[in-house]
């Protein structure tokens, strides 16, 4: 990004091309990385347009290998490529690239500790109209349970770009949880710094802390504004890296504010809330509330309405914060 003559900051091209879709900013960043580094290769699973790999395919046809609808095969191929010194970026639908290929993920990628980056698009219930077969509300739990695996949940398209670029020199396997097709509200700056494992404090506050990830970050910011009007000072942390968890940010929030609400588009079992609770239970027992998907399968409907039905909107975060007062 450069400053133009009139002093305004030019908006980089990727911002408009990504159109506020983190799945596309991931693809654009993979394309950028492939241009910088000959070892980068994109592996698709019938996901060329979902991830936006047509440009890379046109410019470097050999560096895009879409193996069709075969996630197990894609995962094994990525692992094999990584053993030869290539840096594969595996592109899939979050529900399929995690659960369908879970054994390849565990054995070939995590256990063998290969440098594979997995981009899981359409996570959570972003594809709410598709029904439960296409929802990924257990992927954080699955990925977080694997030793060697780093788990990143991007909050918006801007963060999708920066998080992907941050994997360039990162060691070990990484799961990047991406949105998909549903509206993604921009919440992080276009030029924000991104460091894997280092949480972003989006809003200072001393009364209560909301630790959110993914599409619940803008909901948390909105909830904080509502609560501010009531005189409640809310800290909002974008915990984009679930593993390794930023312990310092969590422990500081526990010590400095009156309670912690976690918010995620994921089952209440095993996700961000679980990770935070596991840490606090041992290090700093703290009153907590959990915002996320209850232990059931979601109905079909417009994503916003379905999210709201299951308690994953700003108003639910507001209620959770109030209940800690």
């Amino acid at each position: 990004m450069s400053a133009s003559a009139n002093g305004n900051v030019d908006v980089p091209e990727w911002v408009s091309l990504a159109a506020n879709q983190s799945r596309l900013s991931f693809g654009l960043a993979v394309t950028e990385l492939a241009q910088r580094d000959d070892s980068v290769v994109a592996i698709g699973s019938d996901t060329l347009d979902l991830i936006g790999l047509r440009t890379l395919q046109k410019e470097h046809p050999d560096r895009v290998v879409d193996v069709g609808i075969a996630e197990q095969n894609a995962m094994g191929i990525a692992s094999g490529l990584a053993t030869t010194g290539m840096h594969p970026y595996l592109c899939g639908y979050a529900p399929f690239i995690t659960a369908r290929s879970m054994e390849q993920l565990r054995n070939d990628v995590a256990y063998a500790n290969q440098r594979v980056v997995i981009g899981g698009a359409c996570s959570g219930i972003s594809l709410a109209v598709s029904g439960g077969t296409h929802h990924a509300v257990e992927d954080i739990a699955l990925m977080r349970s694997l030793p060697n695996m780093t788990v990143v949940v991007v909050a918006d398209a801007h963060q999708g770009w920066h998080a992907t670029l941050a994997t360039q020199d990162y060691d070990g396997p990484v799961y990047l949880r991406l949105g998909g097709r549903a509206v993604e509200t921009p919440v992080t700056p276009i030029d924000a710094n991104f460091e894997i494992g280092k949480a972003d404090v989006m809003r200072a506050g001393k009364d209560v802390t909301v630790i959110a990830c993914g599409c619940l970050v803008p909901e948390a910011m909105s909830a904080a504004e509502t609560l501010e009007a009531d005189g409640v000072d809310v800290r909002v942390i974008n915990m984009h890296t679930i593993k390794p968890l930023d312990r310092d940010a969590v422990l500081a929030a526990a010590a400095e504010t009156g309670g912690i609400v976690t918010a995620e588009e994921h089952h209440l079992t095993g996700g961000l809330g679980g990770a935070v609770a596991e840490l606090l239970a041992e290090e700093h027992p703290t009153r907590m509330r959990f915002v996320g998907m209850p232990d059931e399968y979601a109905i079909v409907g417009p994503t916003g309405q379905v999210r709201d039905r299951y308690g994953m909107s700003a108003r639910h975060i507001v209620d959770a914060c109030r209940s800690l007062r």
Binding site: G76, S79, Q104
Partner: peptide
């Protein structure tokens, strides 16, 4: 040992990745 194996049905995909790695480099 080139790859940890034991879960069955994994090796051929891994081999494809290795063969592709040779071609790309």
């Amino acid at each position: 040992v080139e790859m940890s194996t034991g879960g069955l049905g994994h090796g051929l995909s891994i081999g494809i990745g290795m063969a592709l790695g040779a071609r790309l480099q």
